[in-house]
Every structure is written in structure tokens, then in C-alpha cells.
Amino acid sequence: MTGEQLPTRHIVVMGVSGAGKTTVARGISELTGLRFAEADEFHSAANVAQMRAGIPLDDAARWPWLRALAAWMAERHAEGVSTVLACSALKRAYRDELRQGPPEVEFLHLDGSAELMRERLRLRVGHYMPASLFDSQRAILEHLEPDESGMVLEVAASPDDLVRVAIDRLGLPLRASVAGH
């Protein structure tokens, strides 16, 4: 081995709660083989308890979480493994922190009707993030800026359609087992 790094891709599926981040990121992972991670699983117990109580996290609580996510992507990059991460990444500063991990991070922002996402949250079972925090997330959301690598997809499309469009627009190769069928 010459020490040359294998090319990797690092995709962050971002947006507010109810946008479908986890569903789309898992779908991308299943069809492409990119290593999936759910950012919520990187939160400290204190952060989870705070959100479960309906209290939005402040930036001080988010920085260690974001640094852990950036480090996870950087470690996968060092292993030559591409990743897809479901993460809110609501502010530019948060996305800047995620970009401190691997050499390049691409963002896929799932955005759309607040009413649709509220309805999805109402129907969601078994998640610690209460629907009451939805408005606080929408209030701090900073859309991708022109200099950020990424794209926006409308959440009104079906999850399967979102996955297919994302894979196509990102130019991600399908796993051999998927491509042959």
C-alpha cells in the first residue's frame, strides 16, 4: 500500500424532525453500501433527557455531539469507508463543524411543508424527540448557502423516490447486488 487514501464520499441527510432523514439515509445506505449512522445515537444521555423533556438543546450541548459526528466520519474516511449520516445539521456553523471531519462532506437537505412534517411527527412512535421541539428547529434552520456542497429535495415525494433521486443526483454507484436487479 502506498499510503494513498481510497476515495470516499460522506453524505449528511439533514433537516428538521419529521423530514425523513433516517428513512432516506438508511435507504441510500441499503442501495449503495455507504456506512449508515444515526446522529441521534451519538447524543449524550443528558442531551436525550433534555430533549425528551421538551427543552431544545443550546449550542454548548450540541458542540461535543457535532465533534463526535465529525470524528466518526473522519475515522471512516481513514478506513476508506464512505458514509451516510442522518443529522439535523440545522445551522451553517453546525455544518461547518461536521466539515472538520473528512476532507469533503455533502449535504442533502430534506425540506418542505411544515404541515406535512408535523403530521409525520404526530404519527411517529418510539422517538424521544417530542413534536413540541419542531418549531424551535424550524426557527433556527439555516438553509444551505451557495458555497456549501449539497442539494435540497422536497419531502412531499415518497421516501423511495427521495432515495432514488438522491442517489442519482449525487452520482452514487449502486451495490452490485442491487444494480444487477
Rank of each mutant, 00 (worst) to 15 (best):
L144N: 12
R175Q: 12
E145R: 15
S149F: 14
R35A: 12
P173C: 06
A179S: 08
R52V: 04
H77F: 04
A61C: 05
E75G: 06
L66N: 09
G18T: 04
V48Q: 04
A74K: 09
M151W: 04
T83W: 01
R99A: 09
A39K: 03
L85N: 07
E119L: 08
D135M: 08
F107V: 05
G15W: 00
L123F: 01
R67V: 12
D58T: 10
L90Q: 11
M117P: 03
R99I: 01
G171D: 11
P56C: 01
S177V: 15
D111A: 15
E104S: 14
L141N: 12
M51L: 00
R35P: 00
E75W: 05
H143W: 12
D135K: 05
S158N: 11
Y94V: 04
R95C: 04
D111Q: 14
R62S: 04
L110W: 00
M117N: 02
R138M: 14
F36R: 02
P102A: 11
E41G: 13
D147H: 13
A156G: 11
A166N: 01
V84L: 01
L85G: 07
G180N: 15
D168K: 14
L170E: 10
L69W: 06
A166M: 05
T23S: 14
K21Y: 10
M14K: 06
Q50P: 00
V24Y: 00
H10W: 02
R118I: 09
W72N: 00
A71I: 02
L66S: 02
S82D: 08
A49D: 01
R138E: 12
A61H: 13
V13I: 07
F107Y: 08
P159Q: 07
E142V: 13
A60Q: 10
E154Y: 13
M151G: 08
Q100H: 11
A49I: 07
E119V: 05
G171R: 07
H43V: 00
L123T: 13
A179F: 01
A74V: 04
E79C: 08
E30V: 04
L6N: 15
G18K: 03
L90H: 05
T32I: 08
I11G: 03
L69A: 10
A86S: 03
A157D: 03
V24A: 08
